[in-house]
Computed example of a mutant assay.
Amino acid sequence: MVFSKWRQALGGQVKAIITGASACPVRVMRTFNAAGIPVREGYGMTEAAPAISFSRMEPEGALLGTVGPLLDGVEVMLEPSSEFSPGEGEILAKSPGIMMGYYKQPDKTAEVIRYINGERWLATGDVGAWVEGPGGRKFLKITDRKKELLKTSQGKYVAPAPLEAALKEHFLVEQAMVVGDDLRYVTALIIPSQEGLRSWCERHGIAWTELSEMLRLPEVQRRYEMLLERINAHFARHEQIKRFTLLDCLWEPAKADGTEAELTPTLKLKRRVILEKFRREIEAMYR
Rank of each mutant, 00 (worst) to 15 (best):
residue 4 S to D: 14
residue 6 W to P: 03
residue 10 L to P: 00
residue 11 G to S: 08
residue 11 G to Q: 06
residue 17 I to G: 07
residue 17 I to V: 07
residue 18 I to D: 11
residue 18 I to Y: 14
residue 21 A to H: 06
residue 26 V to G: 12
residue 28 V to H: 07
residue 35 A to N: 10
residue 37 I to P: 03
residue 44 G to S: 00
residue 45 M to V: 03
residue 45 M to Q: 13
residue 46 T to F: 01
residue 51 A to E: 06
residue 56 R to Q: 14
residue 58 E to I: 08
residue 61 G to Q: 04
residue 63 L to F: 04
residue 64 L to E: 12
residue 70 L to S: 09
residue 73 G to C: 00
residue 74 V to L: 08
residue 76 V to C: 06
residue 78 L to M: 09
residue 79 E to G: 02
residue 80 P to N: 07
residue 82 S to G: 12
residue 82 S to T: 13
residue 88 E to C: 06
residue 90 E to C: 01
residue 97 G to P: 03
residue 102 Y to W: 14
residue 102 Y to S: 06
residue 106 P to Q: 09
residue 107 D to C: 15
residue 107 D to H: 15
residue 107 D to M: 11
residue 112 V to L: 10
residue 115 Y to F: 04
residue 117 N to S: 12
residue 119 E to M: 09
residue 119 E to W: 12
residue 120 R to V: 02
residue 124 T to I: 02
residue 125 G to A: 01
residue 133 G to L: 04
residue 135 G to F: 07
residue 136 G to F: 15
residue 140 L to F: 00
residue 142 I to E: 10
residue 142 I to A: 00
residue 147 K to G: 02
residue 156 K to D: 04
residue 161 A to D: 12
residue 162 P to Y: 04
residue 163 L to H: 10
residue 164 E to Q: 15
residue 166 A to D: 02
residue 171 F to I: 09
residue 174 E to H: 15
residue 178 V to I: 12
residue 181 D to H: 12
residue 187 T to N: 08
residue 192 P to C: 13
residue 198 R to G: 11
residue 200 W to K: 12
residue 201 C to W: 06
residue 202 E to D: 08
residue 206 I to E: 13
residue 207 A to L: 15
residue 213 E to T: 10
residue 219 E to L: 07
residue 220 V to L: 12
residue 220 V to Q: 15
residue 222 R to M: 15
residue 223 R to Y: 13
residue 226 M to E: 10
residue 227 L to I: 14
residue 234 H to Y: 02
residue 237 R to N: 04
residue 241 I to R: 12
residue 245 T to L: 04
residue 246 L to P: 03
residue 252 E to F: 13
residue 256 A to G: 09
residue 257 D to I: 02
residue 260 E to I: 10
residue 264 T to K: 14
residue 266 T to Y: 08
residue 267 L to I: 13
residue 268 K to S: 11
residue 270 K to M: 11
residue 278 F to D: 10
residue 279 R to H: 10
residue 280 R to H: 15
residue 285 M to C: 05
